[in-house]
Amino acid sequence: MPDPTSIRIRGVDKSFGAGEARVWALKQADFEARPGELIMLVGPSGCGKTTLLSVLAGTLTADAGEVEVLGRRLDGLSQAELTAFRRANLGFVFQSFNLIPTLTVRENVMVPLLVQGVAREEAEARAGALLAKVGLGGREDDRPGGLSGGQQQRVAIARALVHDPRLLICDEPTSALDKDTGQRVMEMIRELSRSPDRVVVVVTHDHRIFRFADRIAEMEDGRIRRVLDDPSLIDSPSH
């Protein structure tokens, strides 16, 4: 029986290029995440974190293996089905924010709702409510360019959560921010995304935010090396 709320990945391979230049980004990777938890993916640069994240976000198709996300087998889905799956279930927070500079803060937050076909008035209201929650009430009509990095990432968090996704995916959400700002942003992700049937996966290099994780999965050479149930047990990173 597929579990409609969790993530289970078994024996996933993903390579880029061909022949001599072929790079194995994932090799027989196994990974699991439980509903309600915030799990961090950590490991040295190039070990495959982003690739794994892309596979479970359905933006990248694995070469082999089983990918089960929120009760759906993603391996074997068509591009259109993957698109529909992302539309319904995913929220994204990116390292470089990826806010559209020519749109207002509110319009940026509305995008996932509008893509889902939610009516404009409702989208506006929901975006406004969430912007108030991330402490940006009153800045709705500003352009992202006028905000600080931390504020921009808060807009991105609002955008990632506005449609109440069951899987929130964050790739290096704090690495473009200074220490204190990074802490506050991570606190906000932690606080706002907490929900018994939502999974939050955060890829990070930033050991200062490890304490926000419920569990930490360490990656090495395209696979998960170990999973720590207590984040305080992790060794200080060497890189």
């Binding site: 976000a57 529909a84 992302r86 319904a88 995913l90 990116f94 990826n98 996932p112 893509v115």
Partner: peptide, 15 residues
């Protein structure tokens, strides 16, 4: 110039 934003919109589920 807007390609990364179009990519982001695609990631968010726009076909």
């Amino acid at each position: 110039e807007n390609l990364r934003y179009f990519a982001a919109i695609k990631a968010m589920g726009a076909g």
